[in-house]
Design a protein around this nucleic acid. Structure first.
Lengths: 203, 203
DNA sequence: GGCGTTTTGTTCTCCCGTTCACAAACTCCT
DNA sequence: AGGAGTTTGTGAACGGGAGAACAAAACGCC
């Protein structure tokens, strides 16, 4: 998030910023920001602030977005389709190298300039492009099978959009994004606001 | 998540479950699950466990998914398109009542059985359907403007997919989903695994 | 009815992230 | 050169979530 805020500041022509400004851009407390940055090193100057470009590079280097990460997406339904076309991935160092779907009827489709290929091609694609990150955008019932297969081919990081809990071996990273859970959380607070107005919570 | 796990258990024909089983289904620790459920009340029976259907109803009632929530989606790009078609919303008590886009050239399109309408229709639609939840799927630069306009029309909960920090008045709930941040987090751990193997972290 | 077994509800403790507060360090102005 | 004003980096306090552990309660068996 800091990296993104810094990029925004750089585009506005800002060359230097204080922790207060950067924290406001990123939507966090300035003390937290300073402490977070202190884990990377002392890249600021007391009395002055941070050099936007310098700090931007240091964070980018630390989190590893200086290199290009090949990614495979499995499950080309509505969501997979959107992810394949999502320009934010490309611009942040991720390259979608293949789209896979178990449904053979989708094999003729071409999405975002890529052919939709059979899920059976996973091994070959991972080997060819040295893929370590996989995205699961399948229905919930298929997610665990896909994850198992991914792990078997050597993928060690999984981004799961399916609403199911994945079990993977130690050493494999999983992050889950659950779209309807997010809406449910909002609806919950909405309901509470309606029941007892005045005790709202900004989170 | 517990609600989803319970629904899964109910579909499998399970009528009763222990905190251990339910926790495994939801992917959490059983002590945490029991503590979470205790905030809602004492819906379990010691020595027996929880009645799946009864607990499912209690949670659903508490979080407010027993009612139907009308939702508007603004920004019908790839992501908005996918969200409009996403079946998970409908099945969890959310009804997409309108799709809005500022680009007039999209007005002819029909997505997921709904016409894409002008962003200017926001006020009328919110008033007509009593909408309190809005979804922002626009580019980052437009997100704040859309949020301001939403708040002005009376929307009090926003789900933001744009990679930007929204500032909203007190009392308005915002949740943010940032797809590329998730990938970046995975890539970061991936990079660390490559640098110092053996100190991997399961989170 | 009483005892052993099972499982919940809850307390206690630990740990980690967040925030406050302040010393150190740097700049600018006189 | 020196002091006033800023701003970073960090030690200390705070708060809250998560797990371990245990008492209370329900069931079943004898």
């Amino acid at each position: 998030m800091y990296l993104r805020a810094l990029t925004g500041l750089a585009e506005d022509g800002t060359t230097t910023c204080s922790s207060e400004e950067l924290a406001a851009s990123a939507g966090v407390n300035s003390a937290k920001l300073r402490k977070d940055l202190s884990y990377l090193g002392s890249y600021g100057t007391r009395g002055v602030g941070y050099d936007v470009e310098y700090l931007r590079y240091q964070i980018a280097r630390e989190i590893g977005v200086t290199q290009d990460w090949p990614v495979v997406i499995v499950g080309i339904g509505n969501l997979g389709h959107a992810l394949a076309n999502y320009s934010g991935f490309r611009s942040r160092g991720f390259r979608v190298v293949a789209l896979l779907d178990a449904d053979p009827s989708r094999k003729d489709e071409k999405v975002a300039g890529l052919d939709v290929r059979s899920f059976d091609d996973l091994e070959a694609i991972v080997a060819e492009h040295d893929v370590s990150i996989g995205v699961i955008a399948t229905p919930a019932v298929a997610a665990q099978d896909v994850a198992d297969r991914m792990v078997a081919t050597g993928i060690t990081s999984i981004l799961n959009f399916a609403p199911s809990v994945l079990s993977v071996p130690e050493g494999v990273g999983v992050r889950k994004v659950d779209l309807s859970i997010e809406l449910q959380i909002l609806a919950y607070h909405e309901q509470r606001k309606a029941v007892s107005p005045g005790s709202e919570d900004a989170s």
